[in-house]
Amino acid sequence: MSRWIGDAIGCPIHFVCETHMIDLITSHFPEAVSGPIEFHGETTLVVRPDRLIEVCTFLRDDPALKFDLLSDVSAVDHFPASPRFAVNYHLYSLENNRELRLKVWLDGEQPHVSSVTSVWPGANWHEREVWDLMGVKFDGHPDMRRIFLPEDFLGHPLRKDAAQFYEEPQFTHNFDLIESQKPYAKE
């Protein structure tokens, strides 16, 4: 069963043009969605955190939009600007061959937003990664624990104010100093 109708002809058919798609979304959620921000051909919509699940369900299920593939969930730390965290959702619609980015702005030291695993189960591991490295919690996630770092790791390393675990390179002028501090295994 081919999900991409255009392949019979060999080129994608755009059922919905870009502006129509944006208008459809913004007219359906006038106060929850703002934008669009256009940059080098990419469209970004800013979504309010409390209406995220509604917007995502609409984007996935509406027959004219059909954003069925969630490619990526990632977060950016804009420290020291406020709001500090931006969580990006990169969506793709196979039928319409359309890309879209959703952005949610969060603030505070312990930000949290609702999880979209009920809409796209594939968000599961991406959200765990964002929690692990950035410290953004996802409410309603079935399994909110660290994925990459050991369970007893303290802190979230990809934040801008996280500690640098940088080891000083050993040159001739500081050779002995670093040699004495390096924990060599004896046996």
Partner: peptide, 19 residues
Amino acid sequence: CGGVFNNYAIVQGVDEIVP
């Protein structure tokens, strides 16, 4: 020696763990 990566995740040289 840790190679290209000098950060929180990589042990800077396996001789810290085994001889």
